[in-house]
Design a protein around this nucleic acid. Structure first.
Lengths: 148, 148
DNA sequence: CGCTAAATGAGACTCAGTATCAAACTTACG
DNA sequence: CGTAAGTTTGATACTGAGTCTCATTTAGCG
């Protein structure tokens, strides 16, 4: 059985950071360690809280700084779902990625994947006068629980 | 030549507001009047500034309140593009709508349309365990000017 | 080691957006 | 028409995510 994804993302990220000329540092490692275990997007506040609850509290400034660096290197994806809070999730090297549906009523976020959607976006990208780098599709609606 | 779209959106909006039980009021009319002339999304700040520069200044609270009411009635679409600022644009009754590409470097926002993308989203919606009401696709990249 | 440059974090600050509440205005009804 | 009842408005205070600053700590390297 191959090594689980979390570790390989973390190793990948650490290599990329070193290659980009960063020194190592405790705050960044703590954030990396937390993100590596995450399946879906976390807000900066959530990251701060969880680290503080765990054994490695980290300054707020450092959390934001690290997330910005990771986003710059495309190691994390920044996701905005419309509540004014940015969320971040690891960008797995494989390239597979998902988008999000948000419940307008309760705010719950659920991931989904769809190859046809990817295809449409890919075709579209070549038509636009933009070098499209990332994309981020947010659908809005009501989840099953809130609909009833 | 048929009447220009702005007026008909405005009339549509005014009818919808009345039907929803709202009274008329100067602030809301000012915001409606401004939005009706707009081709693409405006932020609350921009709306406030333009009204203030024009002949009808409006309180900040009223701008946000009106935008919220309009969004609630689906008369405007709220667009978030990742800079932490919400923008709003009229939802034309025709149903035709566009999405946005954002330049990561200069922040410029450009609209685009794509029937294939709409189709993919539509098909996808029926598969999800969500009643999908709105969608909002944001692509990110570099515009031609910044790429050079 | 010991030096230099980078990383860190406490706290002040910014700014979009929200909450409050008294005054101004709409509407309905007599 | 006039007035009461209820809505809209806007000045202002507030919230909270995110940024900036700068003194202190830490990593990397000779």
């Amino acid at each position: 059985m191959p090594k689980r994804t979390p570790d390989s993302w973390r190793e990948h990220a650490e290599r990329a950071l070193r290659d980009a000329g960063y020194h190592r540092g405790g705050a960044r490692e703590a954030v990396l360690g937390l993100l590596a275990d995450q399946a879906c997007a976390l807000s900066a506040q959530e990251i701060d809280d969880r680290l503080r609850a765990g054994d490695r509290a980290v300054g707020r400034a450092s959390v934001y700084r690290v997330l910005e660096q990771l986003a710059e290197l495309k190691l994390v994806m920044r996701v905005e779902v419309g509540d004014g809070i940015a969320r971040y999730e690891p960008n797995r090297p494989g390239g597979e990625h998902h988008h999000h549906v948000v419940c307008d009523t309760c705010g719950q976020i659920e991931p989904f994947e769809d190859p046809d959607l990817e295809l449409a976006i890919h075709r579209l990208s070549s038509r636009l006068r933009f070098d499209v780098g990332e994309h981020d599709v947010v659908l809005r609606g009501e989840c099953r629980a809130c609909r009833s």
